[in-house]
């Protein structure tokens, strides 16, 4: 105990603390970086290359080595190595400069796409991650699941055909459903439809769509459509999008004319002494939380009013089918109502 003095003890303590922080802080910690580098092995690179090629070929674009290196965030050498292995294994071939998928390569790529989209679906239905994170998480997960795990996952999700952006999920045998619908700018004023797909690339545009309250599966009605902007109604709100943004939305026009309620608002905007009728639950609410709301009686046509206002503003208690049920504001904002 000779060398002890409080200051040096504190110094030792804080340096250990700082070290731990730099090692383990989320995403930028040295430990994670190192781990990532070790695990981003050959397999990952090969699978990423395959996926890129697959997407490019699907949109009828051609890829040479240069664009590929540009697209992927691995070192030059690693990519070249991977490409060599892939040609030897008959996954890709060169047509002059252009890289092309072989039949086998295409199959492999489809498998990766399948895992990616299934995992996004899983994240959307069964976890609490925010939709902004779905893509990146799926991106790292797609290299990790083996065949049996993927099948189990698919079964667990009820063999879904579309991912949460509306992209079709390839089946085990590589078949894919068709996305129904047309790009939003092609709809006439007054037309109604259901959003079936939201394109997630390029990211800038996708982020813009995410920021709005636009959700797959919700009904829309076009009210204005010209070269500068497209205006439409969805779940009681009006959205104005530039045509280039709107083109990232695919909408299936409705066959039958159905009645769309106007003056739709959100349960969160209900005030004391008002009553309202429930129109439905926003498509933003999915999976378990949607089911729970329905079970609690928040179904179309039900009468609702505020039973108790919370002293801290949230959650308020709503009187629904004879019982008082408290919901937080973000939940109440997902319930569509029409005030009486």
């Amino acid at each position: 105990m000779h060398t002890y003095n409080p200051i040096s003890a504190l110094l030792v303590f804080f340096s250990i603390g700082a070290l731990l922080y730099f090692l383990f802080r989320p995403s930028k910690g040295w430990y994670w970086i190192l781990k990532n580098q070790l695990t981003s092995n050959e397999k990952t690179i090969i699978e990423d290359v395959l996926k890129q090629l697959y997407h490019f070929e699907n949109s009828n674009n051609k890829v040479d080595m240069k664009t590929l290196v540009h697209m992927l965030s691995f070192s030059n050498k690693k990519i070249v190595d991977a490409i060599n292995i892939m040609t030897v294994n008959n996954l890709i071939y060169f047509e002059s400069d252009i890289l092309k998928l072989t039949e086998k390569g295409r199959e492999y790529a489809l498998r990766i796409v399948r895992v990616h989209r299934l995992w996004e679906r899983y994240l959307a239905e069964k976890t609490g991650f925010h939709k902004i994170e779905w893509h990146d998480r799926a991106e790292s997960m797609e290299h990790r699941l083996n065949h049996d795990e993927v099948e189990e996952l698919s079964r667990h999700l009820g063999h879904p055909k579309f991912d949460p952006h509306g992209d079709p999920i390839p089946t085990k045998t590589g078949k894919m459903a068709q996305v129904k619908g047309v790009e939003l700018p092609l709809l006439q004023v007054g037309a109604m439809g259901r959003i079936t797909h939201i394109e997630d690339e390029p990211e800038v545009i996708y982020k813009q769509i995410l920021a709005e309250n636009i959700h797959i599966g919700s009904l829309i009605k076009v009210v204005e459509n010209n070269v500068t902007r497209i205006v439409f109604l969805s779940e009681g709100e009006e959205f104005k999008l530039a045509p280039i943004v709107a083109a990232n939305l695919t909408v299936a026009p409705l066959e039958k004319e159905i009645l769309v309620e106007d003056n739709v608002t959100r349960l969160s905007s209900l005030t004391e002494n008002e009553t309202a009728k429930i129109i439905g639950i926003s498509r933003e609410s999915r999976g378990e939380s949607r089911r729970r709301l329905l079970d609690l009686g928040f179904v179309k046509g039900a009468q609702v009013s505020i039973d108790l206002v919370n002293p801290l503003g949230e959650p308020n208690a709503y009187l629904i089918k004879g019982t008082s049920i408290a919901l937080r504001n973000d939940q109440a904002a997902k319930i569509l109502i029409k005030k009486d």
Binding site: E288, R291, R292, L294, D295, L296
Partner: peptide
């Protein structure tokens, strides 16, 4: 239970 149809 509120329902037999949820998976919670």
């Amino acid at each position: 239970t509120y329902s037999l149809m949820s998976t919670s």
